[in-house]
Design a protein around this nucleic acid. Structure first.
Length: 305
DNA sequence: AATATCGACAACCGCGGAAAT
DNA sequence: AATTTCCGCGGTTGTCGATAT
């Protein structure tokens, strides 16, 4: 039948939960547990749908829940993780014991509103040259699985000369003492293993011929490099990790900074840029700094600049 | 003083996919 | 194997007290 018919019969109560309802639900769940949420309401004597009961228990009544303001460490972790995985609230919540996806989502949505009304920071604006016609052509090779299907199927998208690769280097290590090492991944132009990256964290193609790709893009961290994110084209990417000191590799998925650099250079691309989050800035502005100067990258285009 | 807006948080909704029938 | 039911997720709306106009 209709796919989803929960919560729309009459006589099913909705809206905020009363203390009495809470007590009924708590009593039932603590004595019986839940095997099937859909028959919890009947057995517990509640005029709710199972879904509502589940939500109430998961997000509010269950005993191991933690409430109150987020700590500084939690805030930093949320912001950092969001910069990497995007709006995957449930995933982010797994790194914050006792917190729910809903709570984190609410936090983010109000946090982001505050950030948005702040004026952009000056050093984030990078002047881009307007004349690019003289740049030598540089196309991607399809060898070694470098290109994904979208790329090969639509070569017109990649007629822009001289791509500059940009990578976002996850976040600082060991933040708040929480081990998020496995999250320290950066996108790489490669095969189809997107490994759960959120769409807006994928490598994207920018409208600028000089900066055709940006990796790990979060528009709130990297706003001014391009005028509008709408024109960007999400691409499937493979995750890997830039590891400055060579430690803590992730089996099979990690390439180190030097490898990354070599790989980019092997593509015949003269420039690349690695953004790095800087410790201490994540909770404040969430502003990255560039490890390699974009001016130096642009200087590698002698014919036009 | 009255009302509009804001902000934090709670809850709802549709969807995709898993599980059950 | 096909269809229905259920679960969990993420976007969105609702609620209500606080703050601003």
């Amino acid at each position: 039948m209709g796919h989803h018919s929960c919560c729309n019969q009459q006589k099913v109560k909705r809206g905020l939960w009363s203390p009495e309802e809470d007590q009924k639900l708590i009593r039932y769940i603590t004595t019986n547990g839940y095997s099937s949420w859909s028959d919890v309401p009947d057995k517990a004597g509640l005029q709710r749908c199972g879904k509502s009961c589940r939500l109430r228990w998961i997000n509010y009544l269950r005993p191991d829940i933690r409430r109150g303001r987020f700590s500084k460490e939690e805030e930093e972790l949320i912001i950092s993780l969001h910069g990497i995985v995007g709006n995957r609230w449930a995933h982010i919540a797994t790194h914050l014991p006792g917190r729910t996806d809903n709570e984190i989502k609410n936090y983010w949505n109000s946090w982001i509103k505050k950030e948005i009304r702040k004026p952009p920071t000056p050093q984030m604006t990078v002047p881009l040259p307007t004349t690019v016609e003289l740049l030598p052509p540089c196309y991607f090779s399809d060898q070694q699985g470098v290109l994904n299907q979208d790329l090969t199927m639509n070569p017109a998208m990649f007629s822009s000369p001289c791509p500059i690769f940009m990578f976002e280097n996850g976040l600082v290590a060991g933040i708040g003492g929480v081990n998020v090492q496995e999250e320290l991944v950066v996108p790489k132009i490669a095969g189809l293993n997107s490994n759960g990256w959120h769409t807006n964290s994928h490598l994207v193609q920018t409208p600028s011929p000089l900066l055709p790709f940006m990796g790990g893009v979060d528009s709130n961290y990297f706003p001014p490099l391009v005028d509008n994110m709408e024109n960007m084209m999400p691409l499937e990417v493979q995750s890997c990790r830039i590891d400055e000191d060579g430690g803590d590799q992730i089996a099979g998925e990690c390439i180190e900074r030097q490898q990354l650099i070599e790989w980019v250079e092997s593509q015949g691309c003269p420039g690349f840029l690695i953004w790095e989050h800087v410790e201490g800035q994540l909770g404040g502005q969430g502003i990255p700094s560039a490890s390699s100067n974009i001016e130096a990258v642009l200087a590698s285009y002698p014919s036009s600049l």
